[in-house]
Design a protein around this nucleic acid. Structure first.
Lengths: 153, 153
DNA sequence: TAAATAACCAACTAAAAAAGTAGGTTATTT
DNA sequence: AAATAACCTACTTTTTTAGTTGGTTATTTA
């Protein structure tokens, strides 16, 4: 299983879209600048996001990308899936043939872990991340630091 | 974050130890054969497991490795930690400097995910995996397939 | 006490994956 | 017609992982 820059970039870019998308389509150049992600790399990621119909594109000047669905209907798991970071901790991709065609000693462990991670990530929508972001902004303006990570404890 | 063959190998090897360790120290050659992991690679992993005092070694003929602690006192998270697969999904290793010295848009998300994974894995002991394995063996003898992965749904 | 065993160690190689780059074409707007 | 921005392909670099090689050291057993 891998959860690397690619998945993080994809989620970050989608969140950027969710935050700024109300002003019409957002160009990758904008996202690239704001989130400091290489433009060409973003293009590759958005090719996949578009294939999975998470975003739709508008070509030409003033064009860019917008979310295909409402931000409360797009969750983090599907974004990561879309850019090919399979959320699967087993060595057999869940097939169960990890040890001579049979399951290996630890198959169930990794299988369970994968389910846990997937359930967690699919429970988080872009919309909820936007809200979290807004709460942070407000609290920053109020000069106090809110530790949002505590909310899941 | 990475959860790859290395961490899986480490947990599998430790589980092998937990299962067979009652007969005295187990040689890496045995584990290598049973679990189909290259001996030299196992040696590298066990160097780290020994550093973290998860296993202790006995040299010479009849020697090998044994668990340093009771199998119900060793959890999966610390095994994976020991072999240097940091269970951290953030890009900043939890430091919070992922975007120009400040946290990035999605920092909290990855931070939460990391906690979630860590909590899950640290709740699973070698002992519980041994039991799971025994249940499987029994059910196999009874000719029926038990889907243990369902127990967490 | 010699041989066998198995841990211990360091450095290297190969393969895979991730990250990023380069150089274009095509559709659309102004 | 020019500018813009998506779209596309192929390539390079870097990093990580996985595995190999060739030893040494400690301990037991015959």
């Amino acid at each position: 299983m891998r959860l690397t820059t690619r998945g993080r970039y994809a989620v970050t870019a989608m969140l950027d879209l969710a935050i700024h998308g109300d002003k019409g389509p957002i160009s990758l150049a904008d996202i690239s600048e704001r989130q400091e992600i290489s433009l060409s790399y973003l293009e590759q990621l958005f090719a996949k996001l578009r294939q999975q119909e998470l975003v739709s594109s508008v070509r030409g000047p003033g064009g860019g990308y917008r979310l295909s669905r409402c931000s409360d209907d797009i969750n983090v798991a599907e974004i990561i899936d879309a850019v090919n970071e399979c959320i699967d901790a087993t060595s057999c991709n869940g097939k169960g043939n990890c040890h001579n065609g049979d399951i290996c000693l630890t198959h169930h462990l990794w299988d369970d872990l994968s389910r846990q991670i997937h359930r967690f990530l699919s429970g988080i929508t872009l919309d909820s991340l936007v809200h979290q972001h807004e709460v942070q902004l407000v609290s920053l303006q109020q000069g106090e630091q809110v530790d949002l990570s505590a909310r899941c404890e």
